[in-house]
Amino acid sequence: MRQKKHWLLTLYGYLMLLLLLLPLVLVVVTSFGSQAAITFPIKGFTLKWYANILSQPDFVTGFKTSFAVAVTASFLAIVVGTPAVYALTRCGIHHANWFQTVFLSPTLIPEIVIGFALFQSLVIGIKLPLMPVLITGHFLLSVPYVIRMLTARLLLFDQTIEEASWLSGASKIKTFFRVVIPNISGTLLAIFIMCFINSFNNIPITLFLNGPSLTMLPTAILNYLQNNYDPTVSAVSVILMLLTGLMMWLMERMNGLTHVNEHLNQKGQN
């Protein structure tokens, strides 16, 4: 049922889209510019900035570390978050709402504060190496996403299906792994990708927790930008955009968010 929209609304929509996309288009275009500084419009076309990425060791190792940290933190967040959400939605825990708020609380605190607090307490305080603290920070960043999105999915998952499984002879643990997990795997993957993108692109927390021994991609880009203003940064950004885009596309393909969105829409209407 598609209604015909007013032309003004359509125009407004396109304007907003333009506003959102224009900076990105600029980045893409400038990454191909042949001049030594980022300028627009570009004078000549070249791919040398893309080649230059590989000659910057900070970008290469930064990418690898960021990737590793993002994967580890997202994975941990799902491993810790999933049972928590299951308990919150299924076990009739007292004060479930309160717990929910606690799990979501990292979103309420400015990320830069989380970064600083972790640095102060774990790195300075008990002298932990940077890597585990960094992963902890990104883990904290990811947990609220897991809680939020998975709660929506599990509330939508009919509990009588689990009851049918128990009565069929599967214990609660078996039911969790053989019935619940297979049915929410799409959502889990979508959540993983979401957490990954967030963690991979994160600056506020990362800023406090990197150092000479530990280079992360976003901070490497920042550092590079302070000393050079050439289109290499644009080229790196384009690659990051492509990677993020690819993941979003994958997530759509998995259909993992459809349920969640449906649930949120229903909630909004009630």
Partner: peptide, 10 residues
């Protein structure tokens, strides 16, 4: 075994 009102199939 139980047959539910809403079927509850896997």
């Amino acid at each position: 075994s139980m047959v539910f009102q809403n079927y509850a199939l896997f």
